[in-house]
Protein backbone atom coordinates (compact mmCIF):
# COMPACT_ATOMS: atom_id res chain seq x y z
CA UNK A 1 0.00 0.00 0.00
CA UNK A 2 1.14 3.52 -0.66
CA UNK A 3 2.06 5.47 2.43
CA UNK A 4 3.17 8.66 0.71
CA UNK A 5 1.66 9.99 -2.45
CA UNK A 6 2.09 13.26 -4.28
CA UNK A 7 -0.15 14.63 -6.99
CA UNK A 8 1.19 17.35 -9.25
CA UNK A 9 3.40 18.65 -6.48
CA UNK A 10 4.97 21.97 -7.45
CA UNK A 11 6.98 24.38 -5.35
CA UNK A 12 8.29 27.77 -6.41
CA UNK A 13 10.74 29.74 -4.29
CA UNK A 14 10.19 33.52 -4.01
CA UNK A 15 7.21 33.46 -6.33
CA UNK A 16 6.49 36.82 -7.94
CA UNK A 17 10.01 38.24 -7.51
CA UNK A 18 12.95 38.36 -9.91
CA UNK A 19 14.50 35.52 -7.89
CA UNK A 20 11.65 33.14 -8.70
CA UNK A 21 12.76 29.53 -9.08
CA UNK A 22 10.73 26.37 -9.42
CA UNK A 23 12.46 23.77 -7.29
CA UNK A 24 9.91 20.99 -7.64
CA UNK A 25 7.90 20.73 -10.82
CA UNK A 26 4.76 18.58 -11.09
CA UNK A 27 5.95 15.54 -9.23
CA UNK A 28 3.64 12.53 -9.09
CA UNK A 29 4.91 9.87 -6.77
CA UNK A 30 3.69 6.86 -4.91
CA UNK A 31 5.94 5.42 -2.21
CA UNK A 32 5.05 2.02 -0.80
CA UNK A 33 5.16 1.02 2.84
CA UNK A 34 8.10 -0.87 4.39
CA UNK A 35 10.59 0.11 1.73
CA UNK A 36 14.03 1.59 1.82
CA UNK A 37 14.08 4.24 -0.88
CA UNK A 38 17.20 5.99 -2.12
CA UNK A 39 16.81 9.56 -3.34
CA UNK A 40 19.43 10.71 -5.80
CA UNK A 41 19.88 13.71 -8.03
CA UNK A 42 22.39 16.34 -8.93
CA UNK A 43 22.98 19.24 -6.51
CA UNK A 44 20.07 21.65 -6.84
CA UNK A 45 17.80 19.09 -8.48
CA UNK A 46 15.11 19.65 -5.85
CA UNK A 47 15.68 16.61 -3.64
CA UNK A 48 15.83 18.48 -0.35
CA UNK A 49 12.91 20.73 -1.25
CA UNK A 50 10.82 17.68 -2.11
CA UNK A 51 11.74 16.03 1.18
CA UNK A 52 10.66 19.07 3.17
CA UNK A 53 7.19 18.76 1.69
CA UNK A 54 6.63 15.28 3.06
CA UNK A 55 6.32 16.49 6.65
CA UNK A 56 4.69 19.79 5.87
CA UNK A 57 7.64 22.12 6.48
CA UNK A 58 7.03 23.60 3.05
CA UNK A 59 3.63 24.18 1.65
CA UNK A 60 3.32 23.24 -2.02
CA UNK A 61 2.62 26.09 -4.44
CA UNK A 62 0.23 23.68 -6.11
CA UNK A 63 -0.52 20.00 -5.88
CA UNK A 64 -1.14 17.64 -3.01
CA UNK A 65 0.73 15.39 -0.62
CA UNK A 66 -1.19 12.42 0.70
CA UNK A 67 -0.07 10.57 3.80
CA UNK A 68 -1.94 7.31 4.15
CA UNK A 69 -4.46 8.63 1.64
CA UNK A 70 -5.14 11.87 3.52
CA UNK A 71 -4.10 15.32 2.34
CA UNK A 72 -1.66 16.59 4.98
CA UNK A 73 -2.72 20.19 4.40
CA UNK A 74 -6.43 19.43 4.81
CA UNK A 75 -6.31 20.22 8.53
CA UNK A 76 -3.55 22.55 9.65
CA UNK A 77 -4.22 21.72 13.31
CA UNK A 78 -3.03 18.19 12.68
CA UNK A 79 0.27 19.26 11.15
CA UNK A 80 2.21 18.39 14.30
CA UNK A 81 0.80 14.91 14.12
CA UNK A 82 2.00 14.64 10.53
CA UNK A 83 5.48 15.63 11.68
CA UNK A 84 5.50 12.85 14.25
CA UNK A 85 4.47 10.36 11.59
CA UNK A 86 6.97 11.57 9.01
CA UNK A 87 10.33 12.15 10.67
CA UNK A 88 12.81 14.34 8.83
CA UNK A 89 16.52 14.42 9.61
CA UNK A 90 18.20 17.39 7.95
CA UNK A 91 21.67 17.51 6.53
CA UNK A 92 24.25 18.01 9.27
CA UNK A 93 21.63 17.45 11.97
CA UNK A 94 24.23 17.79 14.74
CA UNK A 95 23.70 21.57 14.63
CA UNK A 96 20.24 21.18 16.13
CA UNK A 97 21.41 19.65 19.42
CA UNK A 98 20.68 21.89 22.38
CA UNK A 99 19.89 20.03 25.59
CA UNK A 100 22.12 19.53 28.62
CA UNK A 101 22.44 15.81 28.09
CA UNK A 102 22.21 13.55 25.08
CA UNK A 103 19.37 11.69 26.76
CA UNK A 104 17.28 14.85 27.10
CA UNK A 105 18.01 15.83 23.53
CA UNK A 106 16.85 12.52 22.13
CA UNK A 107 13.79 12.77 24.38
CA UNK A 108 12.81 16.18 22.95
CA UNK A 109 10.74 14.74 20.11
CA UNK A 110 8.99 12.02 22.11
CA UNK A 111 8.28 14.56 24.86
CA UNK A 112 6.65 16.89 22.33
CA UNK A 113 4.45 13.97 21.37
CA UNK A 114 3.12 13.98 24.92
CA UNK A 115 4.32 10.50 25.84
CA UNK A 116 4.75 9.35 29.42
CA UNK A 117 8.14 9.35 31.14
CA UNK A 118 8.40 5.55 31.08
CA UNK A 119 7.68 5.36 27.38
CA UNK A 120 10.10 8.19 26.64
CA UNK A 121 12.86 6.43 28.53
CA UNK A 122 12.15 3.15 26.79
CA UNK A 123 12.27 4.76 23.37
CA UNK A 124 15.43 6.75 24.03
CA UNK A 125 17.30 3.69 25.27
CA UNK A 126 16.01 1.54 22.42
CA UNK A 127 17.02 4.08 19.80
CA UNK A 128 20.43 4.61 21.38
CA UNK A 129 21.00 0.85 21.28
CA UNK A 130 19.86 0.63 17.67
CA UNK A 131 22.44 3.24 16.70
CA UNK A 132 25.13 1.62 18.80
CA UNK A 133 25.43 4.49 21.25
CA UNK A 134 26.94 3.73 24.60
CA UNK A 135 24.56 4.22 27.55
CA UNK A 136 27.33 6.18 29.20
CA UNK A 137 27.13 8.73 26.37
CA UNK A 138 23.53 9.56 27.18
CA UNK A 139 24.58 11.34 30.36
CA UNK A 140 27.13 13.54 28.61
CA UNK A 141 26.54 16.95 27.07
CA UNK A 142 25.85 16.68 23.35
CA UNK A 143 28.45 19.39 22.72
CA UNK A 144 31.18 17.23 24.26
CA UNK A 145 30.70 14.40 21.77
CA UNK A 146 32.75 13.63 18.68
CA UNK A 147 31.36 14.48 15.23
CA UNK A 148 30.11 10.96 14.51
CA UNK A 149 28.51 10.62 17.92
CA UNK A 150 26.79 13.99 17.58
CA UNK A 151 25.38 12.87 14.24
CA UNK A 152 24.03 9.69 15.83
CA UNK A 153 22.50 11.61 18.72
CA UNK A 154 20.71 13.94 16.30
CA UNK A 155 19.41 11.09 14.15
CA UNK A 156 18.29 9.27 17.28
CA UNK A 157 16.27 12.34 18.24
CA UNK A 158 14.07 11.81 15.20
CA UNK A 159 14.09 8.00 15.24
CA UNK A 160 12.87 8.00 18.84
CA UNK A 161 9.58 9.45 17.64
CA UNK A 162 9.05 6.15 15.80
CA UNK A 163 7.88 7.81 12.60
CA UNK A 164 6.20 5.64 10.00
CA UNK A 165 8.29 7.38 7.39
CA UNK A 166 11.84 8.40 8.19
CA UNK A 167 13.59 10.77 5.81
CA UNK A 168 17.33 11.18 6.12
CA UNK A 169 19.05 13.91 4.13
CA UNK A 170 22.64 12.81 3.58
CA UNK A 171 23.04 11.14 6.96
CA UNK A 172 26.61 10.13 6.13
CA UNK A 173 27.97 13.45 4.85
CA UNK A 174 31.38 14.08 6.33
CA UNK A 175 31.78 10.65 7.95
CA UNK A 176 34.71 8.38 7.19
CA UNK A 177 34.03 5.30 4.99
CA UNK A 178 33.91 2.92 7.94
CA UNK A 179 31.53 5.18 9.82
CA UNK A 180 29.35 5.54 6.74
CA UNK A 181 28.90 1.85 6.32
CA UNK A 182 28.13 1.27 9.97
CA UNK A 183 25.62 4.11 10.00
CA UNK A 184 23.84 2.81 6.91
CA UNK A 185 23.74 -0.72 8.29
CA UNK A 186 22.20 0.58 11.50
CA UNK A 187 19.64 2.54 9.53
CA UNK A 188 18.76 -0.53 7.49
CA UNK A 189 18.46 -2.67 10.61
CA UNK A 190 16.21 -0.04 12.14
CA UNK A 191 14.07 -0.05 9.01
CA UNK A 192 13.73 -3.83 9.06
CA UNK A 193 12.97 -3.93 12.75
CA UNK A 194 10.36 -1.21 12.76
CA UNK A 195 8.96 -2.04 9.32
CA UNK A 196 8.91 1.64 8.51
CA UNK A 197 9.55 3.42 5.25
CA UNK A 198 12.95 5.07 4.98
CA UNK A 199 13.92 7.69 2.41
CA UNK A 200 17.64 8.09 2.12
CA UNK A 201 18.96 11.11 0.25
CA UNK A 202 22.48 10.42 -0.89
CA UNK A 203 25.16 11.40 -3.33
CA UNK A 204 26.88 8.06 -3.13
CA UNK A 205 25.66 5.59 -5.74
CA UNK A 206 27.54 2.82 -3.96
CA UNK A 207 25.55 3.46 -0.79
CA UNK A 208 22.14 3.51 -2.42
CA UNK A 209 23.03 0.46 -4.54
CA UNK A 210 23.85 -1.52 -1.47
CA UNK A 211 21.17 -0.39 0.90
CA UNK A 212 18.01 0.55 -0.96
CA UNK A 213 15.33 -1.36 -2.81
CA UNK A 214 13.94 1.54 -4.78
CA UNK A 215 15.41 4.69 -6.21
CA UNK A 216 13.85 8.07 -6.69
CA UNK A 217 15.79 10.13 -9.22
CA UNK A 218 15.30 13.89 -9.42
CA UNK A 219 16.60 15.94 -12.30
CA UNK A 220 16.13 19.67 -12.84
CA UNK A 221 13.15 19.94 -10.46
CA UNK A 222 11.36 17.07 -12.18
CA UNK A 223 10.95 13.46 -11.18
CA UNK A 224 13.14 11.55 -13.62
CA UNK A 225 12.02 8.14 -12.44
CA UNK A 226 10.99 6.09 -9.45
CA UNK A 227 11.79 2.43 -9.86
CA UNK A 228 13.63 -0.61 -8.49
CA UNK A 229 17.25 0.17 -7.82
CA UNK A 230 18.43 -2.39 -10.36
CA UNK A 231 16.11 -1.01 -13.03
CA UNK A 232 17.39 2.52 -12.48
CA UNK A 233 21.04 1.53 -12.76
CA UNK A 234 20.28 -0.27 -16.00
CA UNK A 235 19.68 3.18 -17.48
CA UNK A 236 23.30 4.13 -16.95
CA UNK A 237 23.57 6.20 -20.13
CA UNK A 238 20.70 8.47 -19.07
CA UNK A 239 22.07 8.79 -15.56
CA UNK A 240 25.44 9.88 -16.91
CA UNK A 241 23.74 12.45 -19.08
CA UNK A 242 22.18 13.94 -15.93
CA UNK A 243 25.59 14.22 -14.31
CA UNK A 244 24.97 11.22 -12.08
CA UNK A 245 27.03 8.08 -12.03
CA UNK A 246 26.35 4.40 -11.63
CA UNK A 247 28.22 2.61 -8.84
CA UNK A 248 31.89 2.16 -9.70
CA UNK A 249 31.61 -1.59 -9.67
CA UNK A 250 28.78 -1.41 -12.20
CA UNK A 251 31.05 0.57 -14.53
CA UNK A 252 33.78 -2.02 -14.11
CA UNK A 253 31.35 -4.81 -14.92
CA UNK A 254 30.07 -2.95 -17.95
CA UNK A 255 33.60 -2.54 -19.29
CA UNK A 256 34.35 -6.22 -18.70
CA UNK A 257 31.19 -7.15 -20.56
CA UNK A 258 32.26 -4.96 -23.44
CA UNK A 259 35.49 -6.93 -23.59
CA UNK A 260 33.56 -10.13 -24.06
CA UNK A 261 33.21 -11.52 -20.55
CA UNK A 262 29.91 -13.27 -20.08
CA UNK A 263 28.92 -11.36 -16.96
CA UNK A 264 25.24 -10.81 -16.28
CA UNK A 265 23.76 -7.32 -16.15
CA UNK A 266 22.36 -5.94 -12.90
CA UNK A 267 25.58 -6.17 -10.97
CA UNK A 268 25.82 -3.08 -8.88
CA UNK A 269 27.23 -4.09 -5.53
CA UNK A 270 30.71 -5.40 -4.84
CA UNK A 271 29.37 -8.66 -3.35
CA UNK A 272 27.24 -9.46 -6.37
CA UNK A 273 30.13 -8.68 -8.68
CA UNK A 274 32.51 -10.84 -6.68
CA UNK A 275 30.14 -13.80 -6.74
CA UNK A 276 29.49 -13.45 -10.45
CA UNK A 277 33.21 -13.27 -11.24
CA UNK A 278 34.02 -16.28 -9.06
CA UNK A 279 31.27 -18.18 -10.78
CA UNK A 280 32.67 -17.26 -14.17
CA UNK A 281 36.20 -18.24 -13.16
CA UNK A 282 35.08 -21.59 -11.80
CA UNK A 283 33.40 -22.39 -15.08
CA UNK A 284 36.78 -21.80 -16.62
CA UNK A 285 35.54 -18.99 -18.74
CA UNK A 286 38.65 -16.95 -18.18
CA UNK A 287 40.73 -16.48 -21.27
CA UNK A 288 42.92 -13.65 -20.18
Amino acid sequence: MAILKTEGLTYTYSAGTPFEKTAVDHVDLCIEEHTMVGVIGHTGSGKSTLMQHFNGLLKPTSGKILLDGKDIWADKQKMREVRFRVGLVFQYPEYQLFEETVFKDIAFGPRNMGLGEEEIKRRVLETADALGMDRELLKRSPFALSGGQKRRAAIAGVMAMRPEVLILDEPCAGLDPKGRNLMLQQIRDYQKKTQSTVLLVSHSMEDVAEFTQKLLVMSKAKLFCYDDTAAVFRRSAELREMGLRVPQIASVMEKLRNRGFALPEDLYTVEQARDAMLHLLQKGGSTC
Binding site: L57, R83, N112
Partner: peptide, 9 residues
Protein backbone atom coordinates in the same frame (compact mmCIF):
# COMPACT_ATOMS: atom_id res chain seq x y z
CA UNK B 1 12.79 23.70 10.52
CA UNK B 2 14.79 20.98 12.23
CA UNK B 3 13.14 21.61 15.59
CA UNK B 4 9.72 21.87 14.01
CA UNK B 5 10.36 18.47 12.47
CA UNK B 6 10.82 17.21 16.04
CA UNK B 7 7.48 18.66 17.01
CA UNK B 8 8.61 21.92 18.59
CA UNK B 9 5.56 24.17 18.90
Amino acid sequence: SAQKARGAA
